[in-house]
Write a protein that binds this DNA or RNA. Structure first.
Lengths: 202, 202
DNA sequence: AGGTATACGTACCGATCGGTAACATTGTCA
DNA sequence: TGACAATGTTACCGATCGGTACGTATACCT
């Protein structure tokens, strides 16, 4: 098992959002921007225009709400990833390039807050925490894909190159939120390409 | 201004540690391993064997205690950095190699928790937070040094190489605590050397 | 011995934390 | 009409949060 599946049922587009959905949308916004530990359930229900019992009818605990937030984040993440892949069929190097170029641009926005998965893992170092479990699964899958793409490029040591790309990506997430605009993350695509070039020459 | 100076007075080695010093030592351990937000002041004073008023006599607030923890962390960090530099005088490439080899090894330890500076910045995204201010200063200085070392290596685009090295380092910190032993961080020195190689050939 | 400053402890504060019990209200479908 | 599911309302819980008012002990200096 690797890819995370959504637990929530599909939402009909025309129906008004149910309480659980409203909560999840607000939680996603607040958790991502300010951190999970920094946001209390009271603020979530207040901004969602619902009440606390509604939250606990849809989610067994705040930790599980955080995990649900990350499961949705996971879906959106792979949508973006697959978009970059689909833009350059059969050309993994260009796929990586497209994905990293977009990351590099996003990191230059003023309120960039990095990767929700990465941040959650930092906030919850304890093994087995519901949020951390989702985060770890996402990162394992990302590593697997990057290594596979490195192999498809014909790299001599594909695992090392895949891991190197992952290091650059995580570095971009973090330094993006640390330095803001003008930070090191803006050169992530360029550095990745240099690393790929060096790895293919072997 | 760039380098952070220690505010705390020097500690006499033979005297028994004062309350403030005991608190700072315990806080350093707990904050690093479990996160700053995850640890309350009550637990700190309990494990330090002191009382809460002692904490607030030595530190104006928990946020400032966190900042003091990071100032001490900063000193230790540059000690390790300068150690790697001193081991290879006049050879910045080997200096980077030594520093990253040590990071790569540390990330493979079972309870590795990444960089206290990086983690604090993730925990406190708000601009101006005392802990974040210290963290940002540390990272700016690291960036400055890496770029200077890249220039000393004779890289064509030294700023890009320096930033690439910073991305790899931050990636190692994060993926070290995300993947544990066997994770991508173990290849950080190898990938950095490939990147350097590619950047010098230009 | 007496004063004084430093260092520390006991006990407490209001606010917020995550979470729940019990009941009222609403809209939908049969 | 009547049953059911979903949500809101209100009030509450014990625990923990960061922080403080105030009294006490100890050591040093004169």
């Amino acid at each position: 098992m690797s890819r995370i599946k959504s637990i929530e049922p599909a939402i009909k587009a025309d129906e008004p959002p149910r309480a659980g959905e409203k909560i999840l949308r607000v939680a996603r916004d607040l958790f991502y921007r300010q951190g999970i530990r920094a946001i209390g359930v009271d603020e979530i229900v207040r901004r969602a225009g619902v009440t606390k019992p509604s939250l606990y009818r849809s989610f067994p605990s705040k930790d599980e709400l955080a995990a649900s937030y990350l499961r949705r984040y996971d879906l959106e993440f792979w949508d973006r990833f697959d978009e970059a892949v689909a833009a350059h069929p059969g050309d993994p190097r260009a796929q990586i390039g497209a994905f990293l170029t977009r990351i590099g641009k996003r990191t230059q926005k003023p309120d960039y807050r990095g990767c929700g998965m990465t941040n959650a893992a930092v906030e919850y170092p304890e093994h087995g925490h519901p949020a951390r479990v989702v985060s770890e699964a996402n990162k394992r899958e990302l590593r697997r894909r990057l290594r596979a793409m490195a192999a498809a490029m014909g790299a001599g040591d594909a695992d090392t190159l895949g891991d190197g790309l992952l290091l650059l990506i995580e570095g971009a997430y973090i330094s993006g939120q640390l330095f803001g605009a003008g930070g090191p993350a803006k050169s992530v695509a360029r550095n990745a390409d240099l690393l790929i070039e060096a790895s293919l020459k072997k």
